[in-house]
Design a protein around this nucleic acid. Structure first.
Lengths: 212, 212
DNA sequence: CGTTGAAGTTTCCCATGTAAACATATGTTG
DNA sequence: CAACATATGTTTACATGGGAAACTTCAACG
């Protein structure tokens, strides 16, 4: 009996990329990185063991996805920075917005990149990628400070405050905990306004506060 | 032949509490909430199906653990607030430290309470508990503002900035991403100093910054 | 063309969450 | 006190997932 031609030749041809693309698609659809490898293999049209010819284990695929995420975030921040003309004071809010929007637009990817749960599943050297975000923020703040438009305080203090607030806002948004009726419709602009007053104002620590 | 007495009578007597306590212990030891129910049952000395007589499923146990975490966090914040004598300006840093220390001391619990991954496993109404943290911060800021020691800006802007920074700092610390060589040894004090300058200073938004 | 290696598939193992049936103990009721 | 109902255990079973091992198919190479 004539054998009907298979849907796909025995050799996929580019399964590694297909697995990565399929995983990114599933993460986007389900807003979660806790997919199963068997599901990814099914959607890619191969057996459940085929991925093991391209990735030693599931953690390796997750690491690759996280690296893609860090590449995208880095690109996003650089574009936001150069779009603002490079003036530090003007650059911070667009960068902040780009950062938070990246996380909101890619919740599963962001959680994979920065979460402790994923850290148990991924390569530990992802931390270097995560920390490069801190360095990016540091650079802009350092330039602003040498230009005299940012408060003369250790620049890493400003950077720590900045990254913490942005990371926190991103995570809270992803988790659906920033309700408009509580924080308004522009929580980033609002919260960042408060922070910018701490970064860019002429406030002197020892001055007593103005009273009404 | 004489039957040797079992390690434990057939009826555990307080298995529900033992399961909760064991799970909290495992979370503390492994700094992770992704334990297996079979492991918890084993450590509690019962069969793997026994927990299903006390919890409909694993998600129910995880929800209970998260609720315990929120209770502990709430208590911690109230104690920190009253320890500072209730003066809003003096209360914020101790509360902030209590919040971040809680997360650092209970990384698995904090991640379970606030993480999106756990949200897929838990009861959605945990969000109310999470958001009550925001309300606590709001209350202190509102009192400070009416006392005139905090900047006259919508208080929810300050609260959003506060909670985002604290949540971000907690998550980054838990994930091991706040390296001392990058952020110093007192990142909370440093970052919170920057934020407090934005919350408590007399800075006027339209004033141009002082130049060197 | 035969050999080698890459990249698939199939079969199997172990672990997990959970269901169902069964066993044991406790509490309630007549 | 016995019978019954209920609570709370255990055992068996099922479906699914990660991954190993053996096998199959195809491509590349000498």
């Amino acid at each position: 009996m004539q054998k009907t031609p298979p849907e796909r030749p025995y050799h996929h041809g580019d399964l590694r990329r297909a697995l990565v693309d399929t995983a990114l698609e599933v993460m986007r659809e389900e807003r979660n990185w806790q997919f199963t490898l068997r599901e990814i293999a099914r959607r890619a049209g191969v057996s459940h063991a085929a991925p093991y010819k391209h990735f030693p284990d599931k953690a390796a695929l997750l690491t690759e996805l996280a690296m893609i995420g860090f590449d995208q975030l880095r690109t996003t921040l650089i574009e936001a920075q150069s779009g603002a003309g490079g003036e530090p004071r003007e650059a911070l809010l667009p960068m902040a917005r780009a950062y938070v929007d990246f996380g909101i637009d890619n919740p599963a990817l962001y959680s994979l990149m920065f979460g402790a749960e994923s850290r148990n599943q991924c390569d530990v050297h992802l931390g270097e990628n995560a920390i490069s975000v801190f360095d990016t923020v540091m650079d802009v703040l350092a330039r602003g400070q040498s230009d005299g438009v940012f408060r003369q305080r250790p620049v890493r203090d400003h950077a720590t405050a900045c990254w913490s607030l942005l990371h926190g806002m991103t995570m809270l948004s992803i988790d659906g905990l920033l309700l408009p009726e509580k924080v308004g419709l522009e929580p980033l602009k609002a919260a960042f306004g408060t922070l910018m007053e701490g970064i860019a104002s002429g406030y002197d620590d020892v001055k007593t506060p103005d009273l009404p």
